[in-house]
Simulated scan of single mutants.
Amino acid sequence: MARRYSRSRNYKPKNTAEHRINEHIKIPEVRLVGDNLDELGEVIGQNIESGVFRTNIVKDWAREMGLDLVEIAPKAKPPVVKIIDYNKFLYNKKKKEKEIKNKASKTVIKEIRFGPNTDDHDFEFKLKHAKGFLEDGAKVKAYVHFRGRTIVFKERGELLLLRFLKELEDYGSAESLPKLEGKRMIVIVSPKKKN
């Protein structure tokens, strides 16, 4: 027998509008706000200021202007509405969201791996790379990987990472002291903020 699933109370079909507009606003009174109230007053022939109005009157005003009545804050008492071009409103909203997303910085983490017996030449080579990464604004995750019995050299690994941090003082700062996680001793270095 086929099983029936009931829809939850919070279910909304995918194609519903984000905001209630025009005839979908069924509340008797609304608070009208907006930048175009002077323009609206000229079309209607009376001075209009932000305030509470009967919904059917505000819908008529929106029709006269050839615009949409859009519910901006449905949970307010009474709900807040604007008379605007709804498609233009959605376009500008998506544009702002996209700008905010693009401005958000993406954190890049570069990994540098050491062994507990890393010699000076390898250390200097990896240090040079770490400085470059930090100058480019990326975080550096440095770790000492202990394979097999090399785990007995934990102190060597810690000293190596502390030396690494000391050499990078001018380029970045450690988020925490080196700590052992499984077979790795890890430290993360964040770049210094550029003025």
Rank of each mutant, 00 (worst) to 15 (best):
residue 127 L to K: 06
residue 74 P to R: 06
residue 78 P to I: 09
residue 105 S to A: 08
residue 114 F to L: 09
residue 19 H to P: 03
residue 107 T to P: 02
residue 60 D to T: 11
residue 138 A to W: 01
residue 55 T to N: 12
residue 129 H to P: 00
residue 57 I to T: 13
residue 119 D to R: 11
residue 132 G to S: 11
residue 125 F to K: 15
residue 108 V to W: 07
residue 140 V to D: 02
residue 30 V to D: 03
residue 116 P to A: 13
residue 65 M to A: 13
residue 58 V to F: 03
residue 105 S to P: 01
residue 62 A to P: 00
residue 82 K to Q: 14
residue 142 A to M: 05
residue 16 T to W: 14
residue 19 H to W: 10
residue 45 G to K: 11
residue 88 K to W: 05
residue 93 K to I: 05
residue 44 I to N: 00
residue 55 T to M: 09
residue 133 F to Q: 04
residue 94 K to E: 15
residue 24 H to G: 11
residue 39 E to T: 04
residue 73 A to H: 07
residue 31 R to V: 05
residue 21 I to D: 01
residue 33 V to Q: 14
residue 59 K to L: 06
residue 122 D to N: 15
residue 50 S to F: 01
residue 115 G to T: 14
residue 67 L to M: 13
residue 44 I to C: 00
residue 51 G to P: 04
residue 119 D to P: 11
residue 30 V to I: 15
residue 102 N to P: 00
residue 33 V to P: 08
residue 64 E to H: 06
residue 88 K to C: 02
residue 85 D to Q: 03
residue 75 K to H: 13
residue 124 E to V: 14
residue 45 G to V: 05
residue 42 E to D: 12
residue 116 P to V: 05
residue 91 Y to I: 06
residue 65 M to Y: 00
residue 144 V to P: 06
residue 41 G to F: 06
residue 72 I to F: 12
residue 34 G to A: 09
residue 138 A to K: 00
residue 40 L to A: 02
residue 78 P to T: 12
residue 103 K to A: 15
residue 143 Y to Q: 03
residue 97 E to P: 09
residue 35 D to M: 05
residue 22 N to I: 07
residue 87 N to C: 01
residue 54 R to D: 13
residue 133 F to W: 08
residue 72 I to Q: 05
residue 58 V to N: 04
residue 129 H to S: 14
residue 107 T to E: 13
residue 57 I to V: 14
residue 27 I to P: 01
residue 96 K to N: 13
residue 24 H to T: 08
residue 107 T to H: 08
residue 32 L to Q: 04
residue 31 R to L: 06
residue 67 L to I: 07
residue 133 F to K: 02
residue 98 K to W: 10
residue 132 G to E: 12
residue 68 D to G: 11
residue 54 R to V: 13
residue 128 K to L: 09
residue 125 F to L: 14
residue 111 E to I: 03
residue 65 M to Q: 04
residue 106 K to S: 10
